[in-house]
């Protein structure tokens, strides 16, 4: 359609572009000011606030350099975040895809009931159960550990739902062919069906990694010692009612955004599919 009509510059489209430029500026402005501020001394920030002024005389990498010195734990936090996000994402995808696949492909008693339970899980805010979960984590000896952050949320309803939708749409011929050839039920999943679900894996991987990377409330409760913190919790400890360590905070925040921004720019398509997964009815 677009190729035939050739979009033309009209009054309407100029107005629309103006409108969206305004909204776009609103979206990007805070991040740009944050990046600029990360190259200035914090006193400057305290005095003049966030702004777009770039003063070459004040420009320095000092804030970043500080992150990498021995005094700061930033690199440890970064490593913790990377490790937790990676392990969480891999486990979450493996387990959720199994469940989603099981619900989509097999006919068995209680199948619908199990699916309803998956939906029920999406209907209750997790904030309600954080106190009992906290108590349970103490009992299971999961406090202040990576597994304490990962395990309670690793089988997540939204990815299950998404994988179920995706697996329902796969042609059953592959499944039958594999069975005829003597593949076990498990083998069929891992060798034949899982590769076919690759696009679903990409979307969910990005979404779950983003969730894990930015996750705040639960890690805040589970983690205790400075060496175990993830980036969001670590950065939050720099802000206190008594004083703020803005030098480290701002540069650290910028470095926390960068990997996500890079992934987003390269894999936008999967991002968007993953984000809208919950809302689009299959």
């Amino acid at each position: 359609m677009e190729t035939i009509e050739k979009r033309k510059w009209s009054v309407n489209s100029v107005l629309l572009v103006l409108l969206f430029t305004l909204f776009g500026a609103f979206a990007v402005f805070p991040i740009v000011t944050l990046i600029i501020a990360s190259f200035k001394p914090a006193q400057e920030l305290m005095r003049f606030g966030l702004n777009l002024k770039i003063d070459p005389a004040l420009f320095s990498f000092k804030n970043y350099a500080y992150l990498f010195t021995g005094e700061s734990l930033y690199l440890t936090w970064y490593w913790n975040s990377l490790l937790i996000s990676a392990v969480f994402t891999v486990l979450c995808l493996l387990l959720s895809s199994m469940v989603g696949y099981g619900l989509a492909v097999y006919q068995f008693r209680f199948r619908n009931l199990v699916f309803v339970l998956v939906l029920v899980m999406t209907m209750i805010p997790i904030e309600i159960i954080i106190l009992p979960l906290y108590k349970l984590s103490i009992t299971l000896n999961l406090i202040n550990s990576m597994w304490g952050i990962i395990l309670p949320f690793v089988v997540a309803p939204l990815p299950i739902f998404f994988f179920r939708q995706y697996a329902s749409g796969l042609p059953r011929d592959f499944l039958d062919a594999a069975r005829v050839d003597g593949c076990t039920e498990l083998g069929t999943f891992f060798r034949i069906m899982m590769p076919l679900m690759a696009p679903a894996f990409s979307s969910m991987a990005i979404l779950q990694a983003l969730f894990s990377w930015n996750n705040f409330l639960w890690p805040l409760i589970v983690l205790r010692t400075n060496e175990q913190l993830t980036i969001p919790i670590g950065l939050a400890t720099l802000l206190t009612p008594y004083g703020n360590n803005f030098d480290m905070l701002i540069a650290g925040a910028v470095l926390a955004i960068l990997p996500i921004l890079a992934v987003f720019l390269f894999f936008q398509k999967y991002f968007i599919e993953g984000m809208t997964a919950g809302g689009v009815k299959g």
Binding site: M1, E2, E5, R7, W9, S10, N12, S13, L16, V17, F20, F23, G24, A27, V28, P30, I31, T33, L34, L50, L210, W213, N214, F216, I231, P232, L235, A236, L239, L249, I250, A253, A256, I257, I260, L261, F264, Q268, F271, I272, M275
Partner: peptide, 29 residues
């Protein structure tokens, strides 16, 4: 709409804030 130019560019730009953690967003605000 048909009159819209740079559709994907604007869609991505408006989405960027969602990539930041509340910690980063909270710091800026």
């Amino acid at each position: 709409s048909k009159a819209m130019m740079l559709r994907n560019f604007f869609r991505s730009t408006l989405f960027i804030p969602a990539l930041t953690s509340v910690v980063v967003a909270g710091t800026v605000f």
